[in-house]
Design a protein around this nucleic acid. Structure first.
Length: 405
DNA sequence: CTTCCACGGGAACACTGGGGTG
DNA sequence: CACCCCAGTGTTCCCGTGGAAG
């Protein structure tokens, strides 16, 4: 009797090491980023000489290698610091996780062995705990704030304090590296913060198709077994990703999923067809993932658009229609409806997430609305929404409205 | 030019989960 | 223990505004 897993683990030998294709993997060679690596290293080398490096601001869209580059350079720097016995450390902080002033300082204070609760204290107290903690010995600390725009969206006080902290320290020195997806985010900053944080700027331009191809080639070498992929596969992945803002992460995902698809289809080789399937699958997953993590109210708003779509034979609806349907849904579900104002915010969010398309149109004499339409296939959204146990009752509405047609 | 309706910015408020103090 | 302080989040309230049909 053959074991159930026999087939599944004796892979067709497509992958040699799949980890290489994961976004968290930091390669030892980053193609087409020589300039940025050198720039970063030049600035940070000051830390090894016992000076304080300038603050750095790093710009670039998603998947342009910002995080990988910074991590790579940090590793090198830390290694050298260890060799030379200089007290210099780097702290990587994802500002999406520590997205408020309080949380950021509380985390930093904890890193320097101060006991600080994650909520409850006045912020200035947390701040001075952190300050005392870091100043306890002579050292140089480089704080890396990834996705720094997320932190700024809730006020720039945190950054303001961080950029001024050196003036209050006796022993330690702090420099900052801010990483941002948004090229314009400094516009909302206090000018003092802006000039201090942006002492040095490094830009990561999107990769073009040829560069993406180099990246993929390099990784594919390690990830796949010999001649497991068709010659056309990598150029295709590169081209598809390049058409979407040159996102290397996406290109790598595409390549990995293509391989997985081929594996599942028991194919010996990854072909162009597999890439196309992978592309669809990724898009489906993306939508499903986004919908799943939506807040409850937002799901209801989305359902309203969905229901309107199945009730009338239209695709675009005015915000009034959507809001009415939303109220109906809420009463049906036995929950309190939010105000129209609030719902417009949800619609705007859904718009940004790309689940819905909303355009402001002025109907002259008859005022102004947003025309809202679903911008992803219905069958991607519907099942995911019904997964939410609080929204099960929606399926009942659906049946009823259809039978009244 | 008026008129209409929802858009969307901003202030205010409510609530939560934690602190310290007497 | 009761009580008030604090940051953070989600919400409502208020209101000025845009812009084409009438």
């Amino acid at each position: 009797m053959e074991n159930l897993f026999e087939d599944l683990i004796s892979d067709g030998g497509i992958f040699a090491n799949k980890e290489v294709l994961r976004p968290t993997y930091v390669p030892e060679n980053l193609p087409h980023r020589k300039e940025q690596i050198k720039g970063l290293a030049d600035i940070l080398s000051a830390a090894l000489k016992g000076e304080t490096p300038s603050n750095i601001l790093i710009y670039g869209k998603t998947g342009t290698g910002k995080t990988s580059t910074v991590k790579y350079v940090s590793n090198e720097l830390e290694e050298m610091a260890r060799k030379r016995d200089s007290n210099c450390s780097l702290l990587y902080i994802n500002s999406e996780v520590f997205d408020t002033q309080y949380r950021l300082f509380a985390y930093l204070a904890r890193v320097f062995n101060r006991r600080v609760p994650m909520i409850g204290w006045p912020t200035d107290m947390v701040y001075s705990e952190f300050k005392n903690g870091i100043d306890a010995e002579k050292r140089c600390v480089i704080v890396i704030l990834d996705e720094v725009d997320k932190l700024v969206s809730k006020g720039d006080e945190a950054l303001y304090n961080l950029t001024r902290i050196n003036g209050e320290l006796k022993n330690a020195r702090v420099s900052l590296i801010g990483i941002s997806n948004d090229l314009n985010f400094t516009e909302f900053l206090d000018p003092r913060v802006k000039s201090s944080l942006g002492e040095e700027e490094i830009i990561f331009p999107p990769y073009n198709a040829a560069q993406l191809q180099d990246i993929l080639d390099e990784r594919a070498e390690k990830a796949f077994t010999d001649s497991a992929i068709d010659d056309a596969v990598i150029p295709l992945c590169a081209a598809l990703a390049a058409s979407e803002h040159g996102d290397a992460r996406r290109a790598l995902d595409l390549l990995r999923v293509s391989g997985e698809v081929a594996e599942r289809l028991k194919s010996k080789k990854v072909s162009e067809e597999h890439v196309r399937l992978a592309c669809e699958k990724l898009e489906m997953n993306r939508v499903a993932e986004v919908v799943k993590t939506l807040p409850l109210q937002s799901k209801i708003v989305l359902s309203s658009v969905l229901l309107l779509g199945s009730e009338r034979n239209k695709r675009r609806f005015s915000s009034g229609e959507v809001y009415n349907m939303y109220r109906r849904l809420c009463t049906h579900l036995g929950m309190d409806a939010l105000t129209q104002r609030r719902v417009t915010d949800f619609v705007a969010e859904l718009d940004i997430l790309g689940l819905v398309n909303a355009v402001i149109v002025s109907k002259g004499r008859y005022g102004r609305t947003k025309e809202i339409s679903l911008s992803v296939p219905e069958e991607c959204v519907q099942p995911v929404i019904l997964e939410d146990y609080k929204l099960k009752a929606i399926s009942a509405i659906r049946v009823r409205t259809q039978s009244t047609l």
